[in-house]
Amino acid sequence: MKKNWPLWEVFVRSKNGLEHRHFGSLHAADAEMALENARDVYTRRNEGVSIWVAESKNITASNPLNNGELFEPAQDKVYRHPTFYDLPDDIKHM
């Protein structure tokens, strides 16, 4: 079967101090080209200072069918949040 340019996911850091964020995807034959294409496609309006590209097939994803067991157990762990704890009003800076 004929091979087409694979799909890549593009992550862009908008400015130093911020994390790389998923911007979208594109097609490229190799990593070098993926970087160049990402630069041309996703930073035309000065949107970035750094780019990551990863071939989409190399990204492992959680299965939404397992969302219940993966994420719901965290919903009732309210004691992980500061508002769970009662403190006298006089206490400051805590």
């Binding site: 594109l26 490229a28 080209m33 294409n37 041309d40």
Partner: peptide, 11 residues
Amino acid sequence: PSLETDIACTN
């Protein structure tokens, strides 16, 4: 030859 290359040449 591809959308990506088109965009690059236009740049």
